[in-house]
Design a binder for these strands. Sequence first.
DNA 1: AGTATACCCCGGTTCTCCACTGGGGTTTTG
DNA 2: CAAAACCCCAGTGGAGAACCGGGGTATACT
Lengths: 145, 145
Amino acid sequence: MELSCKSEYALLALLELTAHYDEGEPLQIRQIAAQQNIPDRYLEQLLATLRRAGLVRSQRGAKGGYLLGREPWKITLLEVINCIEGLDSQPSEVMREPKSVEGMVVREIWQEAGRAADAVLQKYTLKDLAEKRDARRQLDIMYYI
Amino acid sequence: MELSCKSEYALLALLELTAHYDEGEPLQIRQIAAQQNIPDRYLEQLLATLRRAGLVRSQRGAKGGYLLGREPWKITLLEVINCIEGLDSQPSEVMREPKSVEGMVVREIWQEAGRAADAVLQKYTLKDLAEKRDARRQLDIMYYI
DNA sequence: AGTATACCCCGGTTCTCCACTGGGGTTTTG
DNA sequence: CAAAACCCCAGTGGAGAACCGGGGTATACT
């Protein structure tokens, strides 16, 4: 399980949108990028991908920005990484055909392992992640005292 | 879960060694490479790595070659991929520190997903893989008739 | 002994992909 | 109408994967 920079940035950005979900006002790319230490021009591309998948909504023009496309407890981590990592990694898997029986069997095991990992990512939502973060923050304060 | 070329080659080679495990005579790189369509000079490097980890034994000189280091049912797929993929991928994970609380939480979830995938790879041994291959071969024959 | 056949070690090369940057648009608010 | 934001497309630099090659060393067979 490799966590690509892309996926991490996307999750951090969505987590930031989750934190401000109740306010109902859009968050700007600049603010998200500054808060999470993400290159803003790069984040722009990721948000565009997330928008096409409906995970975020955008509001154009001055005072514009981004909002979550759905409630935070209805967006799973699996959706996010499938959206971000999905399109370009699938053709590379398809193009190299297993060509031998051994290859087929190996692939099947790999798919089983992948499904096991996906199951974990599917049971967590953005809300879960935000709650975990809050709990972690409380812990940090206690240790500080 | 990406299956790298390296890992697949290593598994196919070990599977070939498993098939000839009872004979007790070493298999040469050339034979393995030809049988599984692997570039032989590349396979050489992978076998060297597997040898340093004790997963295979080598016999030098004429009539030399490679043998499994242990019984096929005592080698798990997880060991193999950790051996092959392990050393160079870990420093890249360590070097980028999470730096934010959000980053930490995301990493933890990712590790949980990784452990779920590893659990699958750990429950399969080379013997299991060889049996799966044989069962698949039988199926192919039945469909052919 | 000598030679052919294997493994062994180290380095280089090519190619692809990721992370990132930049230039120009278009839409909306004030 | 101008500033602020999103939008689209294209390019670049570096790292790593896949692969190739040269030269060495150990061992079996004759």
